[in-house]
């Protein structure tokens, strides 16, 4: 069936009914995808999409996926920085949608960073 404005109205009602609609999310996990010329050219758009879809699919409520500009290491793009509360920030490089799914499962859900994808392993 085709998407209609009536569906959008349903989404509105459903969203407003969720008690914990996140306006801001200071306490949660942050996923930041570099989305400048270098990141976009290297494939950041499908990586961002994969993180968003995976977080939605797993219904992770305290995770925000956001974008930023050029992080400064263009040759390592797509770069994704993940901050889990209480842990040090982890920088992932040369990301792909497939790697994103594994990072969500192991790092964001199980709190175990995927070391082989990090900048420390690449450099």
């Amino acid at each position: 069936m085709k998407k209609s404005f009536a569906d959008l109205m349903e989404i509105r009602k459903r969203t407003l009914n969720q008690v914990n609609l996140r306006v801001d999310n200071d306490g949660g996990t942050r996923v930041v995808v570099g989305m400048a010329t270098c990141g976009i050219a290297a494939g950041a758009r499908p990586v961002l999409k994969a993180f968003s879809e995976e977080v939605t699919k797993r219904e992770l409520k305290d995770v925000t996926v956001t974008q930023t500009g050029c992080i400064g290491m263009c040759r390592l793009e797509p770069i994704v920085e993940i901050t889990v509360p209480g842990q040090e920030k982890v920088t992932y490089v040369h990301m792909t949608p497939e790697k994103a799914a594994r990072v969500v499962a192991e790092h964001i859900v199980n709190k175990q960073p995927v070391k082989e994808y990090t900048i420390g392993a690449a450099e």
Partner: peptide
């Protein structure tokens, strides 16, 4: 602006909304 009229206070960056926009454009 048309979507905003329907959505009221619900922002665009809610996953369900972005999903709807994606499907709406693809169709």
């Amino acid at each position: 602006r048309e979507l905003r009229e329907v959505l009221g206070d619900v922002p665009f960056n809610v996953p369900d909304v972005l999903n709807w926009i994606n499907g709406y454009i693809e169709e």
